[in-house]
Amino acid sequence: METQDLLINYNWKQVLNHKKITEDLQLGNSLVIIKGFPPSDDELQSFISRLGMVLNEKRNNNGKAVFDVKIARRNHFFTSIANSNLIFPLHTDCADFDIIPNTIGLLCVEPADEDEGTNHFMFLNSLLKHLSEDEKQKLLNKKWKFRNQERSILEIENGNYKICYDRITMESFSQLAKTEIEELIHLDKLFKSLSFSIKLEKGDLILFRNDLMLHGRNSIDINSNRLIKRIRFTINQV
């Protein structure tokens, strides 16, 4: 399947049908891109509030909903991996939160140069096609530590699979056995083999399900002015 077949495109200058966009996101088998979105925190939060319940981030964003993803350091250390120039492997946002928001919005205000900062995505549906029933059961049954949470990588809710994965958090807050590290290395390779890439352009707002796919990005030059505005939310039921 071509990458363009996985995208649902809208334009900010159109009269946007919020119910239709919500329905697109509920299906979880495509990414929604809105072209020409204005670089405004208020506009972004107002738009997303019509799609679902916005998460105000207390941990690193002073309770604000819109977070600036850019290279930022404090006392010579990066404030987070999102705010670093490092590769961010495929993962679930907020894997260690009490309640994980099921949808993410990323607004490209200033893209990185050339191939830097390219976004990567992997659909859960693609993964399930490559797993045996035994492999699925193992991922459903084994619990991993995500900071103060214990969760399985796969979960079934109302008859539907969901995914939760963040190797950086899993390794940061647990002393993993050699066999467990090997298991995560194998999963990372599998996820990467099933992923596809999208280079966001200035004014692109991409919306995607956080529980039905994984996302990540390439590395960025340390002096890059790349700026992505991130907002997390749980979509309305329609």
Score class of each variant (00 low, 15 high):
E2F: 07
I8S: 13
N9A: 11
Y10M: 09
Y10I: 08
N11I: 08
K13E: 15
V15T: 15
N17K: 03
K20F: 04
K20S: 08
V32S: 04
I34L: 02
K35N: 13
G36T: 07
G36R: 00
F37W: 03
R50M: 13
K64R: 15
A65W: 05
V66C: 09
R74C: 12
F77V: 11
I81L: 12
S84H: 05
L86G: 03
I87D: 12
H91M: 06
E114K: 11
T118G: 01
N119E: 00
F121L: 05
M122F: 01
F123R: 03
L124N: 08
K129H: 11
L131G: 05
K138R: 14
L139Q: 05
L139S: 01
L140D: 03
R147I: 08
R147Q: 14
Q149H: 07
E150F: 13
S152I: 01
I153L: 09
I156C: 02
I156P: 01
K162C: 04
I163N: 02
C164R: 06
Y165E: 01
D166H: 11
A177W: 06
K178I: 13
K178Q: 14
I185P: 10
L187K: 11
D188Y: 12
L190Y: 10
E201G: 10
G203C: 06
F208T: 05
D211Q: 04
L212A: 08
L212D: 03
R217F: 00
D221W: 02
I222P: 02
S224L: 04
N225V: 04
K229T: 07
R230A: 09
N236M: 01
V238W: 04
